[in-house]
Design a protein around this nucleic acid. Structure first.
Lengths: 145, 145
DNA sequence: GTGGATGCAAACTCTTTGCACCTTG
DNA sequence: CAAGGTGCAAAGAGTTTGCATCCAC
């Protein structure tokens, strides 16, 4: 767990393009979407490189991986008060709008999670996905179905 | 929405084996696991058939699809007081063992979920995934890492 | 100059599909 | 007997990896 064995990752145009795409989009992107966006900057960019960069950046906590049930992984820029080279991203959950399909961070957490496990089970982590209508969609839908 | 256009699905040994495997395991199974178990009954059973049966059975609400974040789909028998041809399965969550990769049902739910949504958001559903060590793995690991 | 990063293609995992054959009703 | 189900193989998405080349440091 020493910093010494963490080799500094090089600054490349590819890495830059990936990060910039995520930062500018302001939402969660699938690797293929990132590729498309980043290619505007680096036309030769390859999908493998996107995946490799995403993994590396994720380990450095420079991007956040968003796994929603039944969906391929997406990635987003770390929100709010993430530390520069911090290793742990702020714990949060997600709200998935069933109408507009957007994903919103939920910076809250229900209590008593530890009590849910059966005897002998040891909980080390949990993930909560809320699904429903976001403010925009709940409003525009109004009383209509 | 007419029952008339729903053709009765045939009774085959394969279908039976899939259902029996799910019922007897008491937990969520990946298609490959189902294949392995069901082959004890029908040795020639094929993965494609498992997938096809799972899809059909899911449409008939005879099996429940379990999607955990970042993982391939699993399936389980409708738990508890599910009606014979009932369509709604009992609400519950899942515990995913990070050691043996098995998934167990959690028949409990943290309170106050509704309060987690930002103003204007309407929660219609939620999914909670617990991750850690199941009783077996927590025990065998003991105090060792 | 050296080692990490990249691009390309092949491999892998999970899931679906085409098709000939078999089975249920 | 006909319609639907099955097995096998091949095809498809999504993701990872081997390897020669390239480039950041």
């Amino acid at each position: 767990m020493n910093d010494a064995d963490i080799r500094p990752t090089r600054q490349t145009r590819q890495k830059d393009a990936v990060l910039r795409s995520l930062a500018q989009s302001g939402r969660s992107l699938a690797p293929a979407e990132i590729l498309a966006l980043a290619r505007a900057e680096v036309p030769t960019l390859n999908l493998s490189t996107v995946y490799r960069q995403l993994r590396a950046l994720h380990e450095e906590a420079q991007v956040v991986r968003v796994d929603l049930p039944g969906q391929p992984a997406r990635f987003e820029a770390p929100c709010g008060h993430a530390h520069a080279r911090g290793r742990a991203a702020h714990h949060h959950h997600h709200f998935h709008c069933i109408v507009c399909d957007r994903v919103f961070p939920i910076h809250a957490c229900p209590g008593g999670i530890e009590k849910l496990a059966p005897a002998g089970f040891r909980i080390e982590q949990h993930e909560l996905t809320l699904r429903g209508r976001c403010a925009d969609c709940a409003e525009s839908a109004g009383s209509a179905a």
